[in-house]
Structure formats: structure tokens, C-alpha cells
Design a protein around this nucleic acid. Structure first.
Lengths: 303, 303
DNA sequence: GCATAGGTATAGCCATAGGCTATGCCGCTA
DNA sequence: TAGCGGCATAGCCTATGGCTATACCTATGC
């Protein structure tokens, strides 16, 4: 780097910290990361200086987290996990065809679930490189029929009869608004009739999210106020306070948790939906596909 | 760096990418990040090479995301957000006293909610530096009485009468197990009687999580199989498949979403709890504290 | 007790990642 | 057709961050 400028955290340092927490010593973390002990030591030092906190209590027998270090490590783990999702997701996107296992997924699934599945698949010893193709639900089905992919994941409520399917997760669309939107104060649930008249920020035509909403509303919907082609764009617009939106719970989980968006309860409308794995009827899934499907199995509980 | 070694993603590069997505051009992103245009350009190039993906379509009038770029940007945002949480959280921990606003929070709240609140507080124009102290619920109450902090956040179900309180969020403890644990197959809910006999991985004595569980169970509990002093440690142990645990939903939201942990439904037991802001009765909250409290207001909806 | 082992920090050396300025190219737009 | 806004390349330069060698510190073992 040239002139100084502000901190600029180092991802590797964060990873090293989590390893120290797990393994109990800087040396062990260094070995795990394939770097020398002094490098690891320095990285932690730099991190401590950048954050202005003592993270480790250096003992003679190793290093243990301080109280502050324990908090910071927790936050580091979140960063490291998000980074791993980025890397595994990107790898799956860039994997050239002629690889072993090729899957397809619709937008929301690909963005919020696929990286976890890919990571878990590897962690469980899945050998083949997985190639991920992203399309809308119709696109996934088309790719399946064209035998370009072996396994697909779709959000659509309607699955053609030439495909077999299995539920792998449950999702729910929710009505969300900005915290300062009038609807955020709303105590009694919004009825279907009311929802049908709202001018919403909506995903583009052909998206699974929009499909699901329209089917649930039996196509009685006011035209969308704005159409946007990504969940992120919808979220930004909603945050600005202009419009409400109906969007997958997966896409707004973080925002709902910390209050950047607010969920408005609904009364008359059932917006739960299954996320399904789909494959060609009559085909026997390969071992890899089978294992992948197992990895993406549905969660239990209140789902 | 010395010899090469593998990629090593650059956090700044990820942030630049999200800015490009938001602002529509590399130049604009560079200006926003206070770096030169060539630097930003190069960072994106390096990122593209590392991920093996074309992220941007360079037009003459700016740059727009490719389909792959759109996915990657979504994942980048998650990393950037987690990083911001790390930074704001650390700043609040390191802020030296004699600062303007001093708050305290119990573990789970400090780890999973406080960083968001701090960020939101700043974003809304909150001027003062906030100092965050972490303790268990009793410690927070003690600090409040000792006037070391102005505002506290606790998980305890019981709040002393010399304090005023306001609910700021709702949390729920959940029974979780590893996906391959026998209980994960369980269809019918677990009863209180059954839960009371289980050998659980538990948080340490004095933690709000443990308090809540014991109160809900009216102290009819088998002794803990293992006691651990952080949510992270509990999660690791549960993941290994050895024991079930009862833990805050906030702490396991990600793991439940992607199936690394599985929630087991409960029947007889009510493990919802309010997370409360607390302050000294009779004291008028300062303007800053008041604004902070407003930021941490409860979310609506099915909460 | 003293030596050993395992842990950590420091010193010193070097390669390079990554910053900046200057410049060239391209395609809109006036 | 000139100009402008946006992107990439070239060339220079600094300091980041890697490595080895070494010193220090404290349990533990003989």
C-alpha cells in the first residue's frame, strides 16, 4: 500500500482469531492456516491495535480469549461464515461444465441457501465439484429438461408432472415496510382485500416470489408500483420508506431481526411455500446428486 | 506479502463492489471510498480474477452488474454487514469512559443485537460515542445502580422494582440438536417432563439463558451434562452430536436456516422471553439514551 | 534444581500488493 | 467534430506482511 489511510481489516486475521479461539494457541492456529507462528502472532497484534482491544491473554501454555476477545470472536465468526458462503457460492458459479455434478436454482434459493448447502456438502466429504446455475424457476425446469443440469431447486408452487420433486425447505413470504412507514404501527392484521389494493414494490414478472404471491391472491392484485429484478433492490426501496413489499422471509431475516424493516402481519392470506428439489421423472439420481439432496434436506421443528 | 500463497480476499474490494452496484460506476465508488479510480478498478479486477467470474459489464457510461455479479454482490453485502457489526461492536467495547453515553448489555443481546443497534443509532445521526459494557444480567443491573451505565439491556425474566423497563425485543429459547441426533427425527413435540430428564449442554450458572430455562421449568431440571460459558461453545458441542441444548433463537438462527442444527419442537414449555431495556427509576433518560432506546424499539409482526 | 519443551514476541530481511499520477482509449452527447 | 465521462494500463514507490533466527518465559520432568 502507498500512503497510510484508515484501518482496512484483514479477513485472514479474523480467521486466525477464530482458530486461536478454537485451538487454544496462536501456534496451533498458525499451523492450521499454514503460516508461520510469527505471522499469526503479528496478525493478531495488528487486529488488536486496529480494534483498540486486547483480545488474547497470552499465557505460557497458550492463549485464551479475554472477555472482549470472546465478543469479538463471535462477530468474527459471522464474517468468516459470510466469506465462506461468498467463496463457495462463487466457486460453484465459476465451475466449468464437464464437471461432475450440475445443479440449478432459482434466485432466492441460490442466494440464501445454496452456499450453505455447498459448504455442507463439501464438509461431509462430497467429492465432485458442483456447478451452480442460477435462473428463475421456469429456467431451472427448462435446463432440467434439456439435461443441462441433473438437479434443480425451485420456488414455484406448481411443478410440471414430468418432474419428480421433494420438499427441501419451507419459506414464507412476508409483508414488510420501513420502520417509519404508517403500516409499521399497525396492530391488527392486514386483510387480503386490503393487500390486493396496495401499490407494492415487486419483483419482476416470472420470478418465483411474484408467482407465489399472485397465486395466493388468486391474481386479484393491484398493479405493482415498481418492478425490480433483485431482492436487494426491493429491500433498498422498501427501506427508503416509499412502498411496502411482499418478499421472502429468507431475504429479510437480518433486517427484521435488527429492525431495519418491520413485518406487517397478514390475516387472510397463506404465503407459506415449499422450496422443492426437482429432477427428471424416471431418471435415477447419481450418487453425488443423491448426496447433495440429502444435504439440503428439510429442517424440522416449527418450519 | 512475501511468497505468494492462496487468494486471501480483500474486504475493501468487497465493499467497493457493493458501492459499484449501488452507484453505477467504478469512479463513483472510488470517490465514495476516498481512493483513486485506478485503485478501485484494480481491486475489482483482482476480485474477479480470484473468484474466476466476470462481475461487471463495463459500459462507456458506467458499469453494471452481470448476472454472476449480482449474486456475488448479494453475498458481499452479507460480509460487509457482518464486518460493520464487528467494527461498530468493537468500537463500542473500546470506547473509553468519560464518553457521552454508556450502556450495558447481557451476553446474548450484546453479541447479536447491540452491533445492529449501534450502527442504526449512528446512521440516524446519533452523535455521541456509545460505550458498551458486557456482563450477565445481574452485572448489568449492578452497573446501573452504581451509575456506571445509563441504560441497560437484560434477558432476565425478573426485573427489580427500583428499575424501570421497556420491552425492546422478543426472544425464544429453542431446543436444538445436531441433524444426525435421534431427536432430530422426532415428529411429536417433546414434553416438559421429558425435557426435564435430558442431559443438556448448558450455559454457565448466572447466564440469562440458563435462568430463563430454569424459571420456565420451575427448577425441575436434570443437572447439566456440560457447562460452557459461551453460546459459540454450546453450538460447537451440539453440532458434534453429543448433546441437545436449549439456547436463544438469536444465537442459532443461521444454523437452523441452513440445517447445521435442527430445532426440536416443545409442547408443555413456554420459552419465549422479553428482552428489556432497563434504567433507574426516577431518572430522566438523557437525550442520547432516549434516542438509543428508540432505535432499539421492538419489532412488530409475529414477534 | 536444572534442563527441556512448548508457547510467544522481536529483529531484520525481502518480495510484492496495492496506492497514486499520468496517460490512452472508447463511445456517448452536445 | 470536439469534448467529456468512464475505464484500463503503465510506471513508480512505499510499507505491509511473509519468513527465519533468536530471545524470553514458565510449566514439567528427571
Amino acid at each position: 500500500m502507498a500512503t497510510d489511510h484508515r484501518p482496512g481489516l484483514d479477513l485472514e486475521a479474523l480467521r486466525v482469531l477464530t482458530l486461536v479461539a478454537d485451538l487454544g494457541s496462536i501456534s496451533a492456529a498458525a499451523r492450521a492456516e499454514q503460516i508461520s507462528q510469527p505471522s499469526a502472532s503479528k496478525r493478531i497484534q495488528v487486529l488488536e491495535r486496529q480494534l483498540g482491544l486486547e483480545l488474547l491473554d497470552r499465557r505460557t501454555r497458550g492463549a485464551v480469549l479475554t472477555a472482549h476477545g470472546s465478543m469479538v470472536t463471535g462477530w468474527c465468526r459471522a464474517v468468516v461464515e459470510a466469506t465462506d458462503a461468498l467463496v463457495t457460492g462463487s466457486q460453484a458459479l465459476s465451475a466449468r461444465a464437464a464437471e461432475q455434478l450440475s445443479i440449478g436454482a432459482s434466485q432466492t434459493i441460490a442466494e440464501y441457501l445454496a452456499p450453505s448447502w455447498l459448504g455442507e456438502f463439501r464438509r461431509r466429504g462430497g467429492k465432485p465439484t458442483v456447478q451452480l446455475r442460477v435462473a428463475n424457476s421456469q429456467g431451472v425446469i427448462a435446463a432440467l429438461r434439456a439435461r443441462e443440469i441433473e438437479l434443480g431447486f425451485v420456488e414455484t408452487p406448481t411443478i410440471p408432472s414430468d418432474l419428480r420433486s421433494r420438499r427441501v425447505a419451507v419459506d414464507r413470504l412476508v409483508l414488510v415496510v420501513a420502520p417509519d412507514h404508517p403500516l409499521a404501527r399497525r396492530r391488527n392484521p392486514v386483510s387480503r382485500a386490503e393487500l390486493s389494493t396496495m401499490a407494492l414494490a415487486s419483483r419482476e414478472d416470472g420470478s418465483g416470489t411474484r408467482d407465489t404471491l399472485h397465486v395466493a391472491m388468486e391474481h386479484a392484485m393491484a398493479p405493482a408500483a415498481v418492478e425490480l429484478d433483485s431482492n436487494a433492490a426491493v429491500k433498498v426501496l422498501v427501506s427508503s420508506g416509499s412502498y411496502p413489499a411482499v418478499i421472502s422471509e429468507l431475504a429479510v431475516a437480518n433486517e427484521l431481526r435488527d429492525g431495519r424493516l418491520v413485518e406487517v402481519p397478514l390475516r387472510d392470506v397463506e404465503l407459506s411455500r415449499s422450496l422443492n428439489a426437482v429432477w427428471r421423472r424416471g431418471t435415477r439420481l447419481g450418487a453425488a446428486a443423491d448426496q447433495f439432496l440429502l444435504t439440503a434436506r428439510p429442517r424440522r421443528g416449527r418450519g
